[in-house]
């Protein structure tokens, strides 16, 4: 507990992975912006997808981790699992925000509108709201253990709810005509870039998680120390 806390030590352990991920990020940028062929119908704007789609996939992964962490926290009551779920929810919300904004930037030149109630877009927005509520209920709890319990309940309920939200929205939208996503054959080199970018962002997520979980555990430790001091006085 004492030694593993300094900034240098923390980045020492993960420095190899951090370096690798940084290199991958640069490579992914190069592949997405320069190497991948320009899409015939949409032009260069389509290159947004090489980062937009991996961010979306990693958000789903992050929210799945929230679900698992919440379940195990309620079962085992170990603070580590709560920290895992908390960290994953925060990262998931940051990533989902980027997914929504980049999707909107892509939609403007392609669909001609910033926003449309397309099923995927709408489902992602609702999911974003659910996990925003997850973070809010934690910060408005009267004490941290209570916040952890409430958040875990929402982490479980929210994850189970997302498929229902998606189903309802897909049914709803198929009743009304919506914009059609152009579906052409995908060039293999485009797929390669997409998967490379996905691997890059998955590793990035893992690294962010390591940092964020450690931050949460340090916060807990600080709270504990303060509490002990108060008891001692």
């Amino acid at each position: 507990m004492e030694k593993g806390l300094t900034v240098r030590d923390r980045f020492g352990g993960a420095s190899l992975l951090t370096g690798l991920n940084l290199a991958m990020m640069v490579a992914a940028l190069y592949l997405a912006l320069l190497w991948a062929p320009t899409e015939a119908e949409q032009g260069n704007v389509q290159r947004i997808f090489y980062f937009h789609v991996p961010l979306a996939w990693v958000s789903f992964l992050a929210f799945f981790v929230v679900f698992v962490g919440s379940l195990i926290y309620l079962w085992r009551r170990s603070r580590w699992w709560d920290a895992l779920a908390h960290a994953s929810a925060e990262i998931g919300v940051v990533f989902t925000t980027l997914v929504l904004v980049t999707g909107s930037i892509w939609a403007r030149p392609i669909w001609g509108v910033w926003w449309t109630w397309d099923p995927r877009l709408t489902t992602t927005t609702i999911m974003w709201l659910i996990y925003l509520a997850y973070l809010l209920v934690r910060s408005y709890a009267t004490e941290s253990s209570q916040g952890a319990r409430f958040a875990a309940v929402l982490g479980i309920v929210g994850f189970i709810d997302v498929p229902l939200v998606a189903l309802a929205i897909v049914w709803w939208r198929t009743l009304h005509p919506g914009p059609i996503i152009p579906q052409g054959g995908v060039d293999p080199s485009m797929l390669f870039v997409l998967f490379f970018s996905l691997a890059t962002f998955t590793l990035f997520y893992v690294l962010l998680m390591m940092g964020r979980v450690r931050l949460r555990l340090a916060q807990d430790r600080l709270e504990e120390l303060k509490y002990q001091r108060m008891q001692g006085d």
Binding site: L129, D161, V165, L167, A168, I169, W171
Partner: peptide, 12 residues
Amino acid sequence: ILFIPVVVPVII
């Protein structure tokens, strides 16, 4: 904040 996003399927 908690209730409305979760009951979206019911509202629709």
